[in-house]
């Protein structure tokens, strides 16, 4: 192995001075304890390196579970209904995915399914799973794989964009049809507020909070 941490159990604290690296320019800093509301910015490039994590693991779990529940509702209930001459039609997210699939828009169907259903769902399930075990001070089975996986799929969850898309569609369709917003839309609105709360949360803190090495997967 070409890399050595300075102690057997790795972790930033095992250097005599804890270190922090800017991901955007590789500048090395000494890591200092942060107070509530502190944000560490790189002096060289200005990127945010670290934020104080003010929400406890318990709060995060509660938020993640709420978000998961709201996500299920957002997907079960119809989002909008259009009406014309007494005819009414409404759709859920899955309705959109299936309709696109049958209208020669398979690529669009897959894009929608992945960015609005699969990745957000896996993301929320993963958070509930990891945080649920972390609350008990334990390491979730598959901890490493979940942490790595969630890191990669995070940029590909697009629920916020979808909500803006629904708003634009409503106004566009309003020119020709009677449009009414359905419960699914409001569930989505709540969901993106919850997801916005997670925006400043760095799940990497779990590496330091959870005794991850003690069981299940030992590093090769």
């Amino acid at each position: 192995m070409g890399v050595l941490s300075t102690a057997d159990v790795p972790g930033p604290s095992h250097f005599t001075v804890p270190l922090l690296l800017c991901e955007h320019c590789d500048t090395v800093y000494q890591r200092l304890p942060l107070a509530r509301g502190d944000v560490v910015r790189c002096v060289r490039c200005g990127a945010v390196i670290e934020r104080h994590q003010s929400l406890s693991v318990f709060t995060l779990l509660a938020l993640a579970m709420t978000a998961l529940l709201v996500f299920v509702e957002a997907n079960l209930w119809p989002i909008i209904t259009l009406g014309l001459n007494g005819k009414k039609i409404s759709t859920t997210l899955w309705g959109v995915i299936l309709a696109m699939w049958h209208e020669d828009g398979q690529i669009i169907s897959v894009l929608v399914a992945v960015t609005l259903f699969l990745f957000p769902l896996v993301n929320l399930l993963g958070m509930v799973w990891l945080l649920g075990f972390a609350c008990k001070g334990r390491c979730a089975p598959g901890f490493r794989s979940w942490m790595v996986g969630l890191h990669y799929l995070h940029p590909w969850t697009m629920s916020e964009v979808f909500v803006l898309g629904v708003i634009v569609s409503v106004i566009k369709a309003h020119l020709y049809f009677e449009v009414s917003l359905e419960p699914g839309f409001f569930a989505y609105a709540v969901l993106i507020v919850l997801l916005a709360l997670f925006a400043s949360v760095d799940l990497r803190q779990l590496w330091e909070l959870v005794p991850w090495q003690s069981n299940v997967e030992s590093p090769e």
């Binding site: 909008i80 039609i89 759709t91 964009v161 898309g165």
Partner: peptide
């Protein structure tokens, strides 16, 4: 991705 979602949603609804 906005426009993609708009087209998908409207195409599903307006039938």
């Amino acid at each position: 991705m906005l426009d993609v979602f708009i087209v998908a949603l409207l195409a599903t609804l307006v039938h």
